[in-house]
Design a protein around this nucleic acid. Structure first.
Length: 872
RNA sequence: GGGAGCAUAGCUCAGCUGGUUAGAGCACAUGCCUUACAAGCAUGGGGUCACAGGUUCAAGUCCUGUUGUUCCCACCA
């Protein structure tokens, strides 16, 4: 038997244990037709990323589920991988280049991509290594990268197949453009931020000199792109102007006044400037009235189009144009206002809506099935409220802009012919135009949205479009675990992609968790400097403590705040378990884990409690109530096992009776081992370390069978009887403490009880845990009552001769108070039971429970009355 | 403009489909180095479950409204 140190040191253990698991090959899922599969695909972290607490939260949940299912007999696959993260990664490499005074254009596409791959190879493994320090039991043999050959093939197939079905098209639309990242974004990638701004009211003179109209805008520079002014057709104020033209100030362009429903008579002046290229509504108005499109911003947010401000940044141009409008008397007023400004989710600069030629996924046909599978419950969100959020979004979803003007990513598999102008869309790189066979073809320079490849993740990682054995066995996967912040980005797109390409939803359950915030409830971020590095936490407290902190103390789907003190508490818990295990080992003389043939009362009690715990934990995990399950195991270990059971066994362990010693050892070892199994998914390292030091069969704890409820180890009656004694012990301790009786004082205890048998076998516990001397069972109070303290419970009255410590008056007063209190309770109880409605309508077990409670109170009151009467 | 979450002890939070006298950790108080653990043990103080109605035999839990707070969605210039 190994001698264990007094304080558990995770640093000495975790790395070694993880290596032991890796060497054992137990993370690797071997397909077994006899077993049911259980599959989770990891939300792939960004390849350049670093582990943060959000990841730790996400991975811990997945690891708990994975380890639990693995121990429960499933063929369990947790498939890991990383995401190429188009914009994020490209920005990082460009930043490095910028420090050298270079841009990606200086290098050229091929050279630049080489650099990104170098970067990926250098840093891509960091996050993977960090995942391992958490204890993640991923199948590393199946690790994937969204840009590896397998995933690339899937992306190519998905694009071509959607294109062939007419579900991918190219067109000129208003898209969100980030002038800093110089690429188009999807709607989901725009974050709206409320900002202080202004309404600039501008007067546009009628060309015929008969007056003017007043328009208002928050982006005055867009007037350069104005193609019309719209008024509502019903608006009496402007009816006579419809068909006339105004002359655009500063520009001199003559633009029409058109009638369009888009103009709201109630809002502002009722006149709207129409800028088809830079506003989605105006774009539609422009199409309806066949207006020309004037693009006035370039890719970097500078003025373009042949104006005197050409090349000027959009914000400077705004100032200059407002100034000039004012100088020339066109500026009517400036009104402060708050409005929502779209910003880029990667760089947080303002995005510009602008008309651009891009690739889109036609969403309406795809959304249909994606809505159905959730509405019909084939895909279930946990907690359920997130299905509403999902359905809302999916019902109103607009076409998805998937082309990005980046270099890092899956390049769009489309070639344009210089000769006939036709497009060739192909699974293989073509060497000629599919239409005219010209060799003069050029590939579309754009790449696909990162989320296009992530959307295929549940099946691309299993080998799709090949019909691999893995795909057949593991798809659809089971649970997808992620934060509510990426339901739209990712979850929604995986669901419709799975339905479309696999004809089957990608997972039956979406387990949604909240975000981890700082102690003030703020979002953690690098810029705010309030981020917590999980690796540091692991170094300080251990991965198990971090995992337990994260998994408990929050309810599903809700955000949680991170407090280091809670980690400390969990570290203390692992130390508690460690020392309890040390205690068991110190006393161990047996080398096999088996239950003894006969069991003492306390053995049956702890076995029964353990058994109940196993049943409840299983139920909770089935319902994804991980925090509740963890809390119950914590309470069992600390309260039931350590504070009571271990203390109860000490009498036997230190006694002369060898058979009794062995018997206690056997139960201790059994209960400890089963407890380690129950706790293992939550605290994998320490449980494995202890298990290895105990006599055991089989290899690792991580592949032992997870405990479930067993009828043969349930002893409810014996449990109840022991609890009568434990109740008396607590009551005696409490009284001693109130009276400041030092532990060294061990008075003779007299017990009068309705269950003498229980107290007979519990004498040793009373002596030891209630710190008394001799124990005598009596029918009624012995000797001189003036010197006795009565401790009254439902099942017993304990008398302690305390002589000088007893103040009879005080004692009488105390008993009287307690009597009053309990009479009050009893009265409530009786009132309830006298209520016809309650007795007839409440379920039988509730009524019975109330009756039992009343009986207990009656017994307690009788005991109290008896004690009082004897006191006189 | 829609929608959602949260409001429970000094602090941070549990409390699942309504059913004992509402729990935990931390903090606090008192007493203990009781030969596993002072990162510990024992005992204790502390809550009108935001507010107002309602449903029910029974409400922290369900319904309605109010207030405060956080978030998501939405093209009102």
């Amino acid at each position: 038997m190994k001698e264990l140190p007094k304080i558990y040191d995770p640093k000495q253990v975790e790395g070694r244990i993880y290596q032991y698991w890796m060497d054992g090959g137990w993370f690797h899922a071997v397909r077994d037709p006899e077993k049911k599969p259980f599959t989770i695909v990891i939300p792939p972290p960004n390849v350049t990323g670093q582990l943060h607490l959000g990841h730790a939260f996400d991975e811990t949940i997945q690891d708990v589920l994975t380890r639990w299912k693995r121990m429960s007999g499933y063929c369990t696959l947790w498939l890991p991988g990383v995401d190429h993260a188009g914009i994020a990664t490209q920005i990082k490499v460009e930043e490095v280049l910028r420090k050298e005074g270079l841009t990606r254009f200086d290098l050229g596409r091929d050279k630049f991509l080489e650099q990104v791959w170098d970067w990926k190879n250098q840093y891509g493994n960091r996050i993977v290594e960090q995942l391992k320090t958490l204890g993640s039991s991923c199948d590393w043999d199946r690790q994937r990268f969204t840009m590896d050959d397998v995933c690339a093939k899937a992306v190519r197939e998905a694009f071509c197949s959607l294109y062939e079905k007419g579900l991918i098209y190219k067109g000129k639309r208003i898209i969100n453009w980030c002038p800093h990242c110089t690429t188009a974004l999807s709607d989901a990638e725009v974050e709206y931020v409320e900002k202080q701004g202004f309404f600039w009211h501008i007067r546009y003179p009628l060309t015929d000199g008969s007056g003017s109209v007043e328009v208002a805008t928050t982006r005055p520079e867009t007037m350069l792109g104005d193609a019309a002014v719209a008024v509502n057709p019903e608006d009496e104020r402007y009816k006579h102007m419809i068909g006339k033209t105004v002359t655009l100030p500063l520009v001199g362009r003559e633009i029409p006044i058109v009638a369009d429903e888009h103009a709201d008579m109630e809002f502002g002046t009722g006149c709207v400037k129409i800028t088809p290229c830079h506003d989605p509504n105006d774009f539609e108005v422009g199409l309806r009235h066949d207006l020309p499109q004037y693009l006035m911003l370039d890719g970097e947010g500078r003025i373009t189009g042949g104006y005197k401000w050409d090349g000027m940044d959009r914000y400077e141009a705004r100032k200059a144009i407002v100034q000039e409008l004012e100088d020339q008397g066109y500026l009517v007023s400036i009104e402060p206002c708050t409005h929502n400004v779209g910003t880029c989710y990667r760089c947080h600069n303002d995005v510009e809506p602008l008309a651009s030629d891009q690739w889109f996924v036609k969403m309406a046909p795809l959304a249909k099935e994606a809505i159905r599978v959730v509405e019909d419950g084939e895909v279930r969100f946990v907690p359920d409220r997130f299905s509403k959020i999902y359905l809302n979004w999916m019902n109103g979803v607009r076409d998805w802009c998937i082309s990005r003007q980046l270099w890092w990513g899956h390049q769009i598999p489309v070639w344009y012919c210089d000769d006939c102008g036709e497009m060739t869309v192909s699974r293989q790189d073509p060497c000629e135009c599919a239409h005219c066979h010209s060799k003069r073809i050029r590939r579309d320079p754009d790449v696909l949205d990162t989320w296009f490849s992530s959307a295929l993740w549940p099946f691309s990682t299993l080998g799709w479009p090949e019909e691999t054995e893995d795909l057949k066995y593991f798809y659809p996967t089971d649970v997808l675990v992620t934060g509510y912040d990426i339901i739209f980005f990712w979850v929604a797109r995986m669901i419709f992609s799975g339905c479309e390409h696999m004809k089957k939803f990608p997972f039956h359950t979406v387990l949604i968790h909240g975000l981890i915030r700082d102690p003030q409830g703020k979002k953690m971020s690098k810029s705010a400097g309030n981020g917590v590095d999980p690796i540091e936490v692991i170094n300080t407290y251990g991965a198990d403590a971090l995992r337990f902190n994260i998994i408990t103390g929050n309810s599903p789907g809700n955000d949680m705040r991170y407090f280091p003190e809670r980690c400390e508490a969990m570290r203390n818990f692992s130390n508690k378990l460690w020392n309890a295990s040390r205690f068991v080992m110190m006393n161990l003389t047996i080398d096999r884990n088996e239950l003894p043939e006969t069991l003492e009362l306390e053995d049956k009690w702890i076995l029964s409690r353990l058994n109940d715990l196993a049943g409840e934990v299983g139920d909770n995990l089935d319902k994804y109530e991980l925090g509740i399950a963890a809390q119950k195991i914590y309470d069992f270990i600390w309260d039931s096992f350590c504070d009571w059971y271990i203390e109860l066994t000490k009498a036997r362990l230190t006694g002369e009776d060898e058979a009794a010693r062995i018997q206690a050892q056997k139960v201790l070892l059994y209960v400890l081992t089963e407890t380690l199994k129950l706790l293992h998914p939550f605290m994998p390292f320490i449980t494995e370390e202890i298990f290895q030091a105990l006599p055991h069969e089989g290899d690792a704890l991580m592949i032992q069978t997870y405990p479930t409820f067993r009828e043969d180890l349930s002893f409810p009656e014996e449990s109840t009887r022991l609890e009568k004694v434990l109740e008396a012990i607590s009551a005696i301790r409490s009284r001693r403490s109130e009276m400041n009786v030092p532990p060294s004082k061990r008075p003779h205890l007299f017990v009068s009880t309705t269950d003498p048998q229980a107290f007979e076998s519990g004498m040793g516990y009373l002596r030891r845990l209630a710190m008394v001397g001799d124990v005598t069972l009596v029918d009624e109070a012995p000797g001189d009552l003036d010197s006795l303290v009565s401790i009254v419970t439902e099942h017993s009255v304990c008398y302690l001769p305390m002589n000088e410590l007893v103040d009879v008056d005080k004692e009488r007063e105390r008993l009287r108070k307690e009597l009053e209190k309990n009479r009050g309770f009893l009265e409530n109880q009786r009132r309830k039971l006298a209520n016809e409605n309650f007795v007839s309508r409440a379920p039988e077990h509730v009524v019975n429970a109330e009756r039992e409670r009343a009986e207990k109170l009656e017994a307690l009151i009788a005991n109290l009355e008896e004690s009082l009467r004897k006191l006189g």
